[in-house]
Amino acid sequence: MNIKKNFRVILPVGVLALAAVAWAGSPQILQPAGPGPSTASFTAINKVFTGDWQQYGQLFTSWQGGLFNRIFLLILTIVPVVFLLHYIIIGAKSFSHAGTPIKFFGILTRFLHWLAALSFSLLVITGLMVVFGKFIGGGPLVMSGRSVHLIAAIVFCLSAAGLFLIWLKDMLPMPHDILWLLIMGGYLSKKKKPVPAGKFNAGQKVWFWLATVGGGIMAWSGYTLYSFAAPVDQIRQMAILHNLLAAGLVAFFIIHLYMSLFAVKGAISSMLTGYKSREEVAIMHSRYKI
């Protein structure tokens, strides 16, 4: 049983490591041109400059020149509107607080969660400051935003690593997660029917993996963008990766905010006090063994 469980972890990690090794490009080396017409030396020079630009330079230029902005703008408008409609049409779920509450999160978990929450919020805000820099005029304001982005990234990495270890066991995918996803966690109905979820539901699991493994990829690509310690074409790939993954993270960040603040009344108190009400656990985390 343990081998099976471990395999679930080892497989994705191994695939990621292989992908990383395959991806790490070798630095460009000037090819000696030798004697020949000047067109030959042009080709050699082009390998250093414009020829290499064809690889990812053009792609990066066209995407950074419009696509990324639009993706972020869409996420920042569409996701909240969808949730507003959900709130109006279906509304929040509320649970009775009768009976002894159930211990859900320890003090270290809560501390690390709020450290991660604070740093992640700063990462989102300062990141969006860079994305939409032209609307706030750029200059020292956005530049100091970049410094905050760096510090927040370090804090987030440390706290997310702690949460990863604490929650890993409960976040492993389970067969009932598919059922949860099929009924969208029961959020599309007003009825209070027990939904198939253990300590964490499938949505929380997706957010967990995106924030930890995705966060690791963000840290890796972000470090490359910060240090520029890579061939320029690799930096371009990292910038594309960083922006696209950031769009996904921002979307899930808004989802997480809505779920914890609005979708389930008082959901946030479990991360403050560490306890969830008995009814909430019975409905939202029906397979959680007390």
């Binding site: 400059f49 414009t50 330079g57 860079v130 820099g133 956005v142 530049m143 520029f228 320029v232 930096i235």
Partner: peptide, 12 residues
């Protein structure tokens, strides 16, 4: 300028 480095990545 905020020193983000995007121009460096775009420049051929």
């Amino acid at each position: 300028c905020i020193g983000c480095g995007y121009c460096f990545m775009a420049c051929p």
